[in-house]
Every structure is written in structure tokens, then in C-alpha cells.
Design a protein around this nucleic acid. Structure first.
Lengths: 220, 220
DNA sequence: ATCAACTTACAATCAAGTAAGTAATGTTTG
DNA sequence: CAAACATTACTTACTTGATTGTAAGTTGAT
């Protein structure tokens, strides 16, 4: 049960092939979902049989995990591994990301579909997304802490909510934009929402809505 | 091509049975997705064969559409058909909805999974969600217009962005919450974000981030 | 000669949908 | 009001086709 690999993946040609498969898989899983997409379709796109893909990745499950990992390495690398911008620059970075994403429906769709699908039973991507969001939230929270300190604001209790919310708007807008690109301006709307949330943490205003509801009275 | 039905679905017993199936379908599609869930599983849950379900709904495709429709009728009825609250009360209503949803992971999950899945190729739910979001956005936008008028604010250009963003945060937070309920307080975070966005429309602050990036320079 | 990168062929399920039958209800009619 | 008929709500059985995964063989490079 050790699953050891001798000479893991050494030959450069092989690496290229694997990458081709991963790219095809992003496209297929992005356009059909994980449950809906098939190894056959992915195989067709790189011009081999589905068994060839299993030769490289062992199982569909494993392939999904590597797709997610690969995309993270390729795409969000700058945010996760290199110098993470901190404080305000992080928020600017997120806005820039939204602008870039507006030109990359394919990848956006893959992430939108796969992240939501990951909440389903026994989905192999679940752990990945759980961890991913946890990491991203804490990075955003850290940026808030830094920004607060920079301007001498005492760190508000709202940082946790705001961090989750910023990631949430970005994701939610992506779905609406994918459904109807003419009706939703992904970049501008993301920018607006991020600014609104950041402002609200840095210079809290009184609630425009009045008092909180008593939670447990509402359950019908 | 008239597709007429004489006495469409008259018998009360039958209506009850259909409803049982719809409820089971929400649960299964919610926990496995549309592509991942099977008629068999739904059938098991109501104690019949999968052919029995096809007798009632004709096809899996049709079943999904009716599930979505049914849930909307049942759940969001107050928002869509009866007196739609307007202006501030609409935002309060949305916050209340978030509080209620925090006690209903099942339905929340169904909508989260199915809405994201609807962007996939040939998904039967796509049109439904496209229309749904269009409707909801315009209702929220209308509430903004009313709220602005009430306080003599000249309607800002940001209303469109804000409307999409409010729906987006709510959805995005649901996904994060489903993945990790202990890490995300669905109700409070939704409340925070909605307040932030509403504030930002009603009393716009200067951007905390500086100037916009030039969009097309960013495409890598 | 060995190993990696495949292919072909096959196993084992499993899914959606169709067709035909059955039992119970409900409706019509003499 | 009952017998005849029709319809509904299913079931069983089947078709068709796909899907993941495995096993074993082939080919070319090192």
C-alpha cells in the first residue's frame, strides 16, 4: 500500500505529456464537472486512449487532485508561495486577479464548478478546497491586520467575516458572470465589492440596517 | 406539439407522492450533484423503482427542472411572488435569510452545488439559474434605488455592481461554510458583507486602494 | 535487456430510458 | 347501481450505451 515511485517522473517528454493531460483535464472538468467529465473525453483531447491516462495518473480521483494542485502551482503561485503581498497591496492584487480572470473563462469555470462540487459526498477535491480556503482566508486576514496597524486602527472583530466575504464575492461573481457575461462585469463588480468590504473594516460605519435579528427565533 | 394533459395532476395522493420525490431529489442532487446523483438513489429514498420516478417526471432532466422550480416556489416564494420587501427591508430580509439558511445545510447545499454545476455544458438548469440571477439582481437593484431615494442620495452608478455582489457574497459564503462550518459564521459574515456593500452604495467613500488598473495591460 | 509509455481487449458495473404488464382506483353507461 | 371501460401508478424486465479500472501485450529508447 506504499504507492512508491522509483524514478518518479524523470524524462522531460513525459513531463510534457503529463502536463498536456492536466491541461485537457482542466478543460473537460471545467466544462462538464468532475462527475460529468470522462477520461475518454480527456484522452481524446490529447490523442490517446483512456487507459493511457490511467497509466500516468492511476485513477480519475488522483487526476483531479493533480489538476487542482497543478493549477494552484501554475496560477496562484505568486500569491501562495512567492512573496505574498501584504496589507493593501494584497487587496490590490486580488482586484488585479479579478481583471485578469475576466479574460480566462476556462480556468475560472473549472474552479467555480469544482469548488462547489467539492462539497458533495466523497468528493476527492474536498480536502483540497477546505485547505485552500482556510489558507486564503488567513492570508487575507493577515493583510487586514497589517493594513489596520498601518493606519493605527485597532483591529476590528470584523476581520474574520471580511476575509471570508472577500473570497466569497469573488467566487460568487464568477458564477453569475459565467452564466451571463453581458449582465455582470466581473472585474468592476469585484473591485467595487472588495473596496466596500475593505472600507468597512478600516472605517466601520454604523449598520445601515438596524439591530440584529435574534438568530434562533428565525428557524420557522 | 401542444403537449396537452387532460386532467394534469389531479389526485391529491399523487401530488403528495410527487412532492416526496421532489424532496428526495433535492437531497440526492444536493449531496451528489446532478451528474453524480442517480434516479436509483432517489427512488430508494421514496421506496419505489427508478422507473416509477420516470413515470412521474419523464426524464432526469425534467426532474431537475421541477426540483428547482419547486424549491423556488416553496422557499423563496415570499421574496419572489408575494409582497417583495423594498428598500431597506429587502436587505434586512436577505440577512434574515442568511440566518435561516445557517440551519438548513441541506437546501443550501443543493442550491450551491446545482447553481455552480449549471454553468457546465448542456446543463438543464442553466436557463433557470440565468433567469433567477437576473431577476434577483434586478430586485436588489430596485431596493437600492428605493433606499437611495428615501435618503435623497442621487442613485450611484455602483448599484449594478452592488446588486450582483450581494448575491455573490451570500452564495460564496455558503460554499465556504459548507466546506468548514466551524471556520465560517454564515449568518454573521453575510450580515457584515451586506452591510458593507449597502453602506458603500449609500455613502460612498473614496477607494481605499487607489486607482484602477488598466484592464487590458493585465492579460499577461 | 530493461523500462517507460503506451495500446488493445476485456471485466464489471451501472445508468437512463422504454415497453409491456398488473392491480387498483375512478368514470361512464345501460 | 353495477358492469364495462379507462386511467393512473406503478413494477419487472430489458436495451443500449457508457464508465472506470485491469491485464497483458507491443514498441522504441537508453
Amino acid at each position: 500500500m506504499t504507492g512508491q515511485r522509483r524514478q518518479p517522473r524523470s524524462r522531460p517528454e513525459t513531463l510534457v505529456r503529463r502536463r498536456e493531460i492536466l491541461d485537457a483535464a482542466v478543460e473537460i472538468f471545467g466544462s462538464k464537472g468532475f462527475a460529468g467529465g470522462t477520461l475518454q473525453e480527456i484522452a481524446d483531447q490529447v490523442g490517446m486512449t483512456h487507459a493511457g491516462i490511467l497509466h500516468h495518473f492511476g485513477s480519475k480521483h488522483e487526476l483531479l487532485l493533480e489538476v487542482l494542485q497543478h493549477r494552484d502551482d501554475t496560477d496562484v503561485a505568486d500569491l501562495e508561495e512567492q512573496h505574498i503581498p501584504d496589507g493593501m497591496p494584497l487587496f490590490r492584487h486580488l482586484v488585479r486577479t479579478a481583471f485578469v480572470n475576466a479574460h480566462r473563462a476556462g480556468i475560472v469555470q473549472a474552479y467555480a464548478v469544482l469548488s462547489a462540487e467539492s462539497v458533495t459526498d466523497d468528493n476527492p477535491g474536498r480536502e483540497f478546497f477546505e485547505k485552500r480556503y482556510r489558507t486564503l482566508r488567513s492570508e487575507v486576514a493577515h493583510a487586514f491586520a497589517v493594513a489596520c496597524e498601518e493606519r493605527g486602527v485597532t483591529e476590528p472583530a470584523t476581520i474574520g467575516y471580511a476575509s471570508a466575504s472577500i473570497l466569497a464575492v469573488m467566487d460568487g461573481l464568477q458564477v453569475q458572470w459565467l452564466l451571463d457575461p453581458d449582465a455582470v462585469d466581473l472585474a468592476r463588480a469585484s473591485e467595487f465589492a472588495i473596496e466596500a468590504i475593505v472600507s468597512s473594516v478600516l472605517s466601520p460605519a454604523p449598520s445601515p440596517l438596524g439591530e440584529d435579528p435574534a438568530p434562533d427565533e428565525l428557524v420557522r
